[in-house]
Amino acid sequence: MQITVRTKQHPHDDAPDTAADFEKLAALPEGPERQALRDELVQAWLPMANRIAMGYRGRGESVEDLSQVAALGLVKAVDRYDPGRGNAFESYAIPTITGEIKRHFRDHMWVLHVPRRVQDLRNRVRTAVKDLSQTTPGHRPTVSEIAAYTRMSEDDVRAGFEALDSFTALSLDAELPGSDDGYALGDALGEPDTGFDLVVDREAVKPCLAALPERERTILYLRFFGGMTQSRIAQQLGISQMHVSRLLSGCCAKVRDEALAESEPESEPELEPEGARQPDPARQPEPV
């Protein structure tokens, strides 16, 4: 019995010898036999896919999900591999599985949608920070140092730094760093201030109120600023309560209409097209 001895160590010591199986798979037509052989090949190379997946653990994704994504990449590699090209299966499968994992991180792990170019900038900046931190311990690399190391512009480096914070999101209920009293991020956010709208409304109606007769202004002041009822206003002015009610309704409607009319943009007069104006009969020449 002749034993074949490998002179060069295989990149995966436990890689199965499936060259003949892949040639057989390529020659088989679609059917149960081909499907069974395909499943056996996927099962045989599954340990390699799991090892590749383990290289991406600790990046915000569970090990089980990484293994499933790597297995999906392995299935694609088995289906697309062509043994007639003369290349080993692992030389085609490893880039396919790695690309599937990277695509998963790019499409499913970002909380905010970031363009592909910015994602690449983020990866280059993250790698550069890691490399430069080893050469200059205790010193955080500056933007100019990273730009010189990666041959990127400083604007691209800043964009990469901003993308570093887009991979995950911080909850508004999360306690801020250094806060001992439970102060959360949501507590630092502002709320709509209705006081600004009140100032705008008051300035809008001020000239309208000034244009009212003195009696109407007095009634409005006593009702809305003095807090008096219509009956007390009627007693003080010596008129009926019904009259006070009508004056209040009329004043409010008038002020409202005038304020709204001033807030609307004035429409420009439409210009007649040249030659459309009718001639003046008075200037018509007398018939000869």
Rank of each mutant, 00 (worst) to 15 (best):
M1E: 08
I3Y: 09
R6T: 06
T7I: 06
K8F: 05
Q9S: 07
H10W: 03
P16Q: 04
T18P: 00
A20D: 15
F22P: 06
L25Y: 10
A26V: 02
A27S: 13
G31H: 10
R34P: 10
L37R: 11
R38Q: 14
D39N: 15
E40M: 06
P47Y: 00
M48W: 00
A53S: 12
R59Y: 15
G60P: 15
S62L: 13
V63Q: 13
D65S: 14
D65W: 12
Q68S: 12
V69F: 08
V69M: 11
V69P: 08
Y81H: 09
R85H: 04
N87K: 05
F89R: 00
S91K: 04
Y92P: 01
T96F: 01
I101Q: 01
K102E: 02
R103Y: 03
F105N: 02
F105G: 01
W110E: 01
P115S: 07
R117K: 14
V118S: 02
Q119P: 03
D120A: 05
T127L: 04
D131I: 07
T135F: 09
P137K: 07
P137Y: 10
Y149D: 09
M152G: 02
D156Y: 03
R158N: 04
A159V: 08
A163R: 04
D165G: 11
D165R: 14
S166Y: 12
F167I: 14
A169E: 15
A169S: 15
L172V: 09
E175I: 15
L176T: 11
L176M: 15
G178R: 12
G178K: 09
S179V: 11
D180C: 02
D180A: 10
L185I: 13
D197C: 05
L198N: 07
D201F: 07
V205H: 04
P213S: 14
I219T: 13
L222S: 13
F225L: 13
F225T: 13
M228P: 00
T229L: 04
S231R: 14
R232S: 07
A234G: 05
I239S: 03
S240V: 00
Q241L: 01
Q241A: 13
H243L: 05
L248M: 12
G250K: 14
C252W: 11
V255Q: 11
E258H: 08
E258N: 12
A259Q: 10
A261L: 06
A261Q: 11
A261V: 06
S263G: 07
P265Q: 12
E268W: 11
P269R: 11
P273G: 09
P273C: 05
E274F: 08
Q278C: 02
P279M: 04
P279C: 02
D280I: 04
A282Y: 00
E286I: 11
